[in-house]
Structures are given as structure tokens and as C-alpha cells.
Design a protein around this nucleic acid. Structure first.
Lengths: 129, 129
DNA sequence: TTCTGATGTTAGTCAATCCTAACATATTGT
DNA sequence: ACAATATGTTAGGATTGACTAACATCAGAA
């Protein structure tokens, strides 16, 4: 079930979206996911299917979507990177929220967890102003 | 000739590589480009062909590659983003050079020029330590 | 129960970008 | 000039992830 294949940018986006949605809804549905990510339902269906095969999530036909333990772990890491980046953009660079959200979404796939942690520490030291 | 189509990540990478190579060599050749970007020659040929159609560069069969005015302009913008990001990673976050180079290469496609300029200013203010 | 509307799935297609294998052209050395 | 080598191109294919159109299933209302 487990795959050693590195996560694609899109997979990471899907993982993060499922994590965020699952904290607000009992069941994450394909339509929710598609709307959230601004893709069509067939696209979401296809990606969910692929990610299910990779052991990142559990999804029965027509049923709700649930992250596996591994999927949830990876989702949390993506979100961690996202938050550090967004905080930096908003609070240190003064980027408007919407722009920062969008750019953090793109950047989160581009940095290592090491860099993310360094950024987090940097923010700790510099957000005391 | 001019295209309004947004530049793909890959196109941006190719533009930046051509710019950097053209500053070191009289002629940029497919093989140079392919080696630099760690892709095969047919891949580079194909991308160069596509980008030529988009008016980003000039390339005659078997001949050297040259950026058009528009291509060069875009390449400089990519590089600007790259440098701001790399400087930030290295000098403020203490990321090792190789890692910073790699991550800047990925991040440069994810931020706007506005954010890049904000980052540049932030670096100016904070690199005086 | 049946019908309607909402939700979800399947199949086919496209774009982008990479690869390999085979071939074409240019360059260099003898 | 010819042969060998280097460089570059073409054709075909794979992966990823998006789209549309058609179809299937589910849930709720009548």
C-alpha cells in the first residue's frame, strides 16, 4: 500500500484540502474538494482514486473521503509549510492576505521541512516587534 | 508572435538558463541547455521549439539559441525573483547554499514580482547586521 | 413507490514536459 | 575527401492532471 514515490504538488494540495475540510465537516465529499481546489468533480474523483491507491486516503465509491494515517501526516507537514510561508508573507513582507494565501499555496511545495522550520524560528524571533 | 499565455514553470527555467549561459558563452547550444537543466537533448529541443513559437527566443535548426527582447525581459524577472529568494534563504535563514539554490529554483515560479520586490526591500533592511 | 435533483463516476481528450530510440547534420581529425 | 565523433532533430511514448460529455448512483420530495 505504502508508496515511496515523492508526493506531487497536486497530491499535496489535495491532502491539505482534505485535512482542512475534514476539520469543518463530518464527511469530505468529492464536490467539496472540487470546489475548494477549483477543479471539476471528475478531476477530483480521478485524483482521489490515484491517491487511494497510494495509501494516502480511503475512499469507497460514492462514499466519503478520509485521510489515512500516512496521508494525515503528510497533510500536516504541507500545512505547516503553508502557515510559515503565509505568516512570513503577511507579517514580515506586508503582502495582502489574498495574495499571500495564493502564493503560500504555490510555495509550500517548493521548500523542505528543514527550511520551513528555519522560517518558523525566524518568524519567532522577528514577530516580537 | 507575442503570446499572452502565462509562462509555465518550465519555460521560466529555460529562459533563466539561457540568460545565464548566454552571459558565459558566445553561443548557447541545445546540449549546454540540456546539461544545465538536467534534461535530455530532445526535451530541450522540443521546449526551445515551443518557446520559439511563443516569441521568447530565436532558434534556427542546428543553430544557436538567442533570447528575444521579450524573452530576455522575462528571464531577468525570473532571475530577480531567484536571487531575492536565494539571498533570503542563505543569509537570513542560514540554509546551505546547495539547498538554497535548489529551493530558490522551485520557489521563483511561485511568487509575484510584487512579493519579490517586498522581499528585496526586506533584505535591504535586514542585511545590515 | 416514483420522480427529480444532486452527487459522483467513467471514458475520452488535451496540454505540458519529460524520456528513449533512431535518424540527420555539423564538426573535427586524418 | 572521408571517417569518426559530436551535436542536434524527429517520432513515438509515458506521466500527470486538467477538461467535457455522458452515464450511474444516491437522497429527498411528492
Amino acid at each position: 500500500m505504502r508508496t515511496e514515490k515523492p508526493l506531487t504538488r497536486s497530491s499535496q494540495d489535495y491532502l491539505e484540502a482534505i485535512l482542512n475540510l475534514s476539520e469543518r465537516e463530518q464527511n469530505v465529499r468529492i464536490t467539496d474538494l472540487a470546489n475548494h481546489l477549483q477543479v471539476t468533480k471528475p478531476s477530483a474523483t480521478g485524483m482521489v482514486k490515484a491517491m487511494s491507491r497510494q495509501g494516502l486516503l480511503q475512499h469507497d465509491k460514492y462514499g466519503p473521503i478520509q485521510l489515512t494515517e500516512e496521508g494525515a501526516k503528510q497533510a500536516h507537514l504541507v500545512r505547516q509549510r503553508h502557515r510559515a510561508l503565509k505568516d512570513f508573507l503577511v507579517h514580515l513582507l506586508g503582502v495582502p492576505h489574498k495574495t499571500a494565501e495564493k502564493e503560500a499555496c504555490l510555495m509550500e511545495h517548493s521548500i523542505s521541512m528543514d527550511t520551513s522550520e528555519r522560517l518558523y524560528l525566524f518568524l519567532q524571533e522577528n514577530l516580537t516587534k
